[in-house]
């Protein structure tokens, strides 16, 4: 009886904690590292996800994890790294066409348009490349971001989807004939009629102010000299000259600012469009 009791105590005290211990998980086992990385990836915590996937990848390399690492780097803006990884997929991989398109996307985001175009031209050597059409769209769209001469309109537009033609046509027209204002012309106009340069760059209120201020101060200076009030004559004359010269300079500067602003608006528009289109890249959703 005594022995049975002692055996019971032995198994209870040693077996129970062992059973609990068996339920304990190794947080750093490869499977759990991947599980955690997947969770981070789908929570948009891409840097941490990339680092966790890399740990797993060093033990069990596979294309799916490599794709996720590259995607994570792309998401955090490390396009250099993502391009390198996407470019390393072999043609035998199922993910090859997706990786290739993501590679193009990374080059585009890296603003490496020259390499992008030469890489896209090379895909002709790949038989039946699944996303050849989208790659060509990206190829031609990149022209909007560079100073390179665009192909003729009809050839250019022929490479885009019909639903996008209208928008692309607007971009093409803006790029080939941007509605810039000439700083020299703005300055000349203001030299002839104070404020006219401001009118030219659509700053009507500034133009009226410049005209009224210069004319009033000039008139005051003239009448003061005429009445023998030399101090005030010089004072108003100096102010009038300052306004006049300032307005000429201001008009030229305003034309430059106008050009920068519309250039910024244009680049913003083409950036928003390509982002909305996900860079003509199909992408894979790993977080369904």
């Amino acid at each position: 009886m005594k022995k049975i009791f002692l055996l019971f105590i032995f198994f209870f005290t040693t077996g129970f904690p062992q059973a609990v211990k068996q339920n304990e998980i190794n947080l750093f086992s490869p499977a759990n590292i991947k599980k955690f990385a997947d969770y981070l990836f789908c929570s948009n915590d891409y840097l941490r996800a990339a680092l966790e996937y890399e740990k797993y990848f060093s033990l069990y390399p596979n294309d799916s994890v490599k794709f996720k690492i590259a995607t994570a780097y792309s998401k955090i803006g490390d396009y250099d790294k993502s391009a390198l990884m996407f470019d390393s997929f072999t043609k035998s991989s199922e993910l090859f066409p997706y990786a290739k398109m993501e590679y193009f996307k990374s080059l585009f985001q890296e603003k490496n348009y020259f390499r992008l175009r030469s890489s896209i031209l090379n895909i002709d050597s790949i038989n039946n490349f699944r996303f050849a059409y989208q790659a060509k769209e990206l190829y031609y769209y990149s022209y909007l971001f560079t100073i390179d001469t665009l192909p003729p309109e009809s050839i250019y537009l022929a490479h885009f989807d019909k639903t996008d033609i209208r928008q692309i046509k607007n971009f093409y027209e803006w790029k080939t004939d941007p509605p810039h204002k000439s700083p020299l012309l703005a300055a000349l106009l203001s030299a002839v009629i104070p404020g006219a340069g401001k009118f030219y760059v659509d700053q009507v209120a500034d133009g009226i102010t410049a005209l009224v201020a210069t004319a009033s101060l000039g008139y005051l200076s003239y009448t003061d000299f005429k009445a023998g009030h030399y101090f005030r004559g010089w004072l108003f004359g100096g102010l009038a000259a300052g306004f006049y010269a300032g307005n000429i300079y201001g008009s030229a500067a305003a034309a430059q600012i106008y050009n920068v602003k519309i250039q910024f608006d244009f680049e913003n528009s083409i950036g928003v469009f390509i982002n909305a289109k996900n860079f003509f890249t199909p992408g894979i959703n790993f977080c369904k």
Partner: peptide
């Protein structure tokens, strides 16, 4: 002898498990 052996084993294993740090 058996009783002492079982007692000692119990003691050692219990101590090991009690002091084994929880993973979390």
């Amino acid at each position: 002898k058996i009783t002492v052996t079982i007692f000692l084993l119990t003691l050692i294993c219990t101590a090991q498990n009690l002091f084994a740090q929880n993973e979390f």
